[in-house]
């Protein structure tokens, strides 16, 4: 398991997920509220920047389309924020249209803390560092703000098909 720090262990009764808009408006879901939202089953290939891929992985989670449906925003960018302090940035459009989920089950089992549980972001069309473990929210932004690895040399966007590993790739 790749990790840049100690594994946060967040019990689901203390977990929450917050979308914060560029105006500071907050939309928060408790674990119970998240579980009450329509769940989707997702089978996708994963591509890690450390040069492994895993094909046909099986997840369950809530689409970001569902979570952002009622959120009014003029933002073009998003910064995923995590328990433990990790962040990663993405264009907002990459979180929409069936491309991203808050995933909480993997291979029909609850997502273990080592894999980012209780819930992680799943954005399979980008390198896997964008699929932030232990996600606790999304900050919507008018300007792009680089995250943890993006401030340390990794590519701002991270398209595996264009091998966008490092800045300038």
């Amino acid at each position: 398991m790749l990790t840049a720090g100690p594994t946060p262990r967040v019990p689901s009764d203390r977990w929450e997920f917050t979308v914060t808009t560029e105006t500071g408006q907050r939309h928060t879901w408790s674990w119970q509220q998240m579980m009450a939202l329509p769940a989707e089953t997702i089978t996708v290939d994963l591509h890690c920047v450390t040069k492994w891929s895993k094909l046909g992985t099986h997840w369950q989670g809530v689409s970001l389309d569902t979570l952002l449906a009622e959120v009014e925003t003029a933002a073009d960018y998003a910064l995923a924020q995590c328990y433990g302090g990790y962040t990663t940035n993405l264009p907002l459009e990459d979180l929409l249209d069936g491309q991203a989920w808050v995933a909480y089950r993997y291979d029909d089992e609850d997502l273990a803390a080592e894999h980012g549980g209780p819930a992680r972001l799943l954005v399979p069309h980008l390198y896997f560092w964008k699929s932030a473990k232990w996600v606790r929210g999304i900050q919507l932004l008018l300007e792009d703000e680089p995250g943890f690895w993006e401030t340390a040399g990794y590519h701002d966007y991270g398209d595996p098909w264009r091998e966008q590993r490092y800045q300038g790739d």
Partner: peptide
């Protein structure tokens, strides 16, 4: 040092 990551991440042994 957390090295199973896309880079080396060194944390303070006192405050992490």
């Amino acid at each position: 040092v957390y090295q199973r990551a896309p880079g080396l991440v060194a944390r303070c042994p006192s405050c992490e």
